[in-house]
């Protein structure tokens, strides 16, 4: 059974179609990313999954049950963790007090010490929340999301405002949770984060699914052209190259190709024979960000929708 299953979901606010015919499935333990610019229908979709918004039509199953049915909500909230942005924590409590308070709401909570360890706040366990830095508060947010031992975790931009080290730690935590069988639904504006964590991505644009797939194949990314670039030493002319370049800026050469293996082979053999250094040689595909921007460009012009 999937952790999340959405079929033909629709939701409108008056005349505005916030979500149109959206369907996706998320298997247990997967990290799933829902992307899209503000106003694309992300928050609406997530709030429907969390049971805070009523859908107009379509079928939604969260851990096998319908979140739109009031009687299911308490059961669901015992098993679903939600990490939102910009929600205060009682500033006068310590990290441990807040976690212990919230742990008491759940039927099978995770041990508070384990949570403190997982989010890396061991040194801060008995410090008041108001004394925490922004990044530490963000980690406490995540701690509060996982203290109930959730089967499914909604993470809304979990690393916004974190320094690089804390960001990597959060990634590790998300991977650990996923390995332990927690399904994670991620929303993020950082494409490197999505690429590092998600096994499945859905991009929403104007309420519809614009693309869906693995981060490496999204939008035909795995099949598109590859850019090979390098610099040639002085004295070597562009015309000496065994392959025709698609562009050059001074000594910097760029070759765009579909058959990167053949091009690289000819290029490197040539360089080895002639004993020439190809300085700064790099082989890059279109980045996830390029694909994402391409997919959502159209809606960027009109990105002031009613909700994000």
């Amino acid at each position: 059974m999937s952790s999340l299953s959405v079929t033909s979901l629709n939701k409108s606010y008056g005349h505005v179609h916030a979500v149109v015919d959206v369907s996706f499935e998320v298997a247990r333990g997967d990290v799933f990313a829902l992307l899209g610019p503000n106003g694309a229908g992300k928050t609406t979709t997530i709030e429907i999954l969390e049971g805070f918004l009523k859908r107009d039509s379509g079928d939604v199953r969260v851990l096998g049950v319908d979140p739109g049915v009031h009687a299911n909500q308490r059961w669901l909230r015992s098993r679903v963790g939600v990490v939102l942005q910009e929600l205060a924590v009682e500033s006068f409590f310590t990290v441990r007090q807040v976690l212990e308070r919230n742990a008491g709401f759940y039927p099978e909570p995770r041990a508070v010490d384990e949570v403190i360890e997982l989010v890396g706040l061991r040194d801060k366990a008995d410090v008041k929340v108001k004394k925490l830095s922004g990044g530490q508060q963000r980690r406490l947010d995540i701690g509060l999301g996982i203290v109930g031992n959730p089967l499914l975790l909604f993470l809304d931009e979990p690393t916004t405002g974190l320094d690089p080290a804390a960001r990597r730690m959060t990634w590790e935590l998300i991977r650990t949770l996923s390995q332990q069988g927690t399904t994670v639904m991620l929303s993020s504006h950082y494409m490197d984060e999505v690429e590092a964590l998600a096994c499945h991505v859905v991009v929403l644009s104007k309420g519809r699914i614009a693309a869906s797939g693995t981060p490496s194949s999204l939008g035909g990314r795995d099949l598109g052209k590859v850019a090979i670039s390098f610099s040639i030493p002085p004295g070597i002319s562009v015309t000496d190259l065994p392959v025709a370049p698609s562009g050059c800026q001074g000594q910097r050469i760029e070759i765009s190709t579909d058959c990167e293996l053949e091009v690289l082979s000819r290029l490197t053999s040539w360089a080895l024979v002639k004993d020439i250094q190809l300085v700064g040689l790099s082989v890059t595909r279109q980045t996830l960000e390029d694909v994402y921007l391409g997919l959502t460009r159209e809606s960027l012009a009109s990105s002031d929708g009613p909700r994000s």
């Binding site: 969390e50 939600v82 939102l84 205060a88």
Partner: peptide, 14 residues
């Protein structure tokens, strides 16, 4: 207004 209530609402506390 600071979101403390909304945060409680995310938990199973009825």
């Amino acid at each position: 207004e600071t979101g403390l209530l909304k945060r409680l609402r995310l938990t199973p506390l009825p």
